[in-house]
Design a protein around this nucleic acid. Structure first.
Lengths: 356, 356
DNA sequence: CTGAAAGCGCTTACAG
DNA sequence: CTGAAAGCGCTTACAG
């Protein structure tokens, strides 16, 4: 146990060869005789030799490592997709024997410094940024550092770097179209802080959807909150307590939609019957919601793999601006969408109406 | 953009000093005059110098990196806790400026080779293994390699290495006690494949709980399936279709419990009223289940941080066998547990009863 | 207090 | 076909 692992020198000595020859044999140089190549490889296997990667990478001049910048936790279990994304990234990297680092620097100040340190210290050959802000300083930083990167999502101005995204605007147009077809004319929007580009896009889609269906965009129907279930509950509460409450709600994340369902339950309203709710993400968990959540599902199975492949291509020298990959979300109808209810449009009777 | 980052040599030249002096100044050696130390640090800041970590680590002889072995995906979004765990690990590592690698090797054959390569190639100083099997070859491998590691969970024989776990046996005794107090006498167990130690432990707890409450352990009440919601649905279906179906179900994961709820709904049974269901994990999502899921919640907020701290201690030379940290899960009562229903114990009328 | 030198474990032109 | 040597960018005894 703990036999110190053999290095090139020891292996060479064992074989009565120089490290130079052994190294080239191991790396399949053509100027090594087949005989010694085999002999070397056999001995390497037997002794369990593995080249020291720090030394190797220092020598070849690339860290053969890529970093995934984890979005910070917003509430408990808010990121069920991280594992899947990492699995996809790892799959792409494994094929080359590259490593996957994870770090937690977001768009705040101190974290920019940590990103800079990460790339300047030669630890990584590329970076995956996720959940970008409308104007994200990390993107600017990476550009000025000249380090390859790919964004999972987009910023407002996104033409000069690589990204992979799902079309949130289109998804919300689809959701509104669906609701309009069901007869809804007052549709509430439950959104996330607009500094996040995804939040802005989905709001844009909501507005475009309204316009497209000849519906007015009333600002009181737009409620912004943290993208957690509690945020969704709070926002839905405000909307349902309006004098003219909406008959349907679209939510920027499934988590918020789940929270919105709670607000409906608290008001004895049945989701899908009294009030329709459509979420966004397509989380598997939505199937078990009360009732099962209708949602705009994004095709997340291959996001990690694609992000990895794109990043590797860029590191290999491809033009980043060639990679603008936009996927579409699709409507998954479960049980929270339905035709506008007969008593729709009923005004809430507020105490204030009776006041002076 | 892309100014090639300065290295020690360039920085030294810029300062008219040798790399030797500059290195020691940067690392706060006491034999450097305060004046030049300040001068060096200032210049380093200005030029954005960051020591190349591959070189540094090769020189100091440690990779300053730790690896987290991700459990493989079992179904979509099956690992909502991975993000939280990584965040905790990262927090512990950040304090020393160490890196966090993630890899996906599980207990299968080819993956053992990849673990061996990982440690032999000097890329990592330690490893976090999760979701171990009863007898996990990864643990044996790490021991024979003499590489520090910590297990999230335990194997059957777990006295000679470090682990952090939640007491699943105790949790299931608690769950059974709770159900027994509510009058249940036929309690079904929905489990995962028993090669996983966690599955065995929870089954042990189930049996111990039954015994403790004077209830018989009937093998037909134990159903093993994959730990996904579909697995839970299938297992619950079999149990509820028994001639003498159980009046309560305990499930080894919340995911399986959510699946079990579906099986009850399909049979027009109301969870918490007709049949009680208790899950395990304490997933946040359970709050939004139909109805909200009662569960044995594990304190997962600090698992990552603890695992990181333990691993670092071992790397620093602490005795691994000193770290056997067992947390307790606690009952979170939501809405799927309730007193045994009045029509409990009613036999299913099967067609076979009418047969010859 | 600072410099010159060796070494970490590889890779890769360059000789022979 | 193989060897001797330089170099990757650091750190750290060892001199002076």
């Amino acid at each position: 146990m703990g036999e110190k692992s053999v290095n090139l020198k020891a292996l060479a000595a064992h074989l009565d060869l120089t490290v130079s020859t052994v190294s080239r044999a191991l790396n399949d140089y053509s100027d090594i005789s087949p005989a010694t190549r085999e002999r070397v490889k056999l001995a390497a296997d037997q002794l369990g030799y593995r080249p020291n990667q720090n030394a190797r990478r220092l020598s070849i001049g690339t860290p053969e490592t890529v970093c995934y910048l984890m979005p910070r936790q917003i509430g408990p279990n808010a990121q069920p997709f991280v594992a899947q994304l990492l699995a996809g990234l790892g799959e792409a990297l494994n094929e080359r024997n590259w490593d996957l680092l994870v770090s937690q620097a977001d768009a705040s100040v101190g974290d920019l410094a940590s990103i800079e340190r990460l790339v300047r210290s030669g630890r990584i050959a590329g970076l995956v940024i996720s959940r970008p802000l409308k104007n994200d300083p990390r993107v600017n930083l990476m550009q000025s550092l000249g380090c390859p990167f790919v964004v999972h999502g987009r910023t407002e101005k996104c033409d000069d770097y690589a990204w992979y995204d799902v079309d949130g605007e289109d998804a919300f147009v689809t959701a509104i179209n669906h609701l309009a077809r069901l007869g809804h004319r007052r549709i509430g929007f439950i959104g996330a802080p607009l500094q996040y580009q995804f939040a802005q896009e989905r709001l844009d889609g909501y507005i475009r959807g309204l316009t497209h269906n000849g519906l007015a965009h009333e600002t009181e129907l737009v409620q912004i909150a943290e993208f957690t279930d509690e945020g969704g509950t709070a926002a839905a509460g405000i909307l349902m307590d309006l004098l003219q409450p909406p008959t349907a709600l679209v939510c920027v994340t499934d988590m918020m939609a789940l929270g919105a369902l709670e607000a409906l339950h608290a008001r004895k309203l049945t989701p899908g019957k009294d009030v329709s709710v459509i979420g966004y993400d397509g989380l598997h968990f939505g199937k078990h919601a009360n009732p099962p959540l209708t949602t705009m599902a994004q095709p997340q199975a291959h996001a990690g793999r694609r992000l990895g492949d794109i990043l590797l291509s860029i590191i290999d020298g491809a033009d980043p601006t060639k990679f603008h990959e936009l996927q579409r979300a699709h409507l998954v109808q479960r049980s929270t969408d339905g035709p506008v209810s007969s008593n729709a449009g009923q005004a809430n009777v507020s105490e204030r109406e009776d006041s002076p």
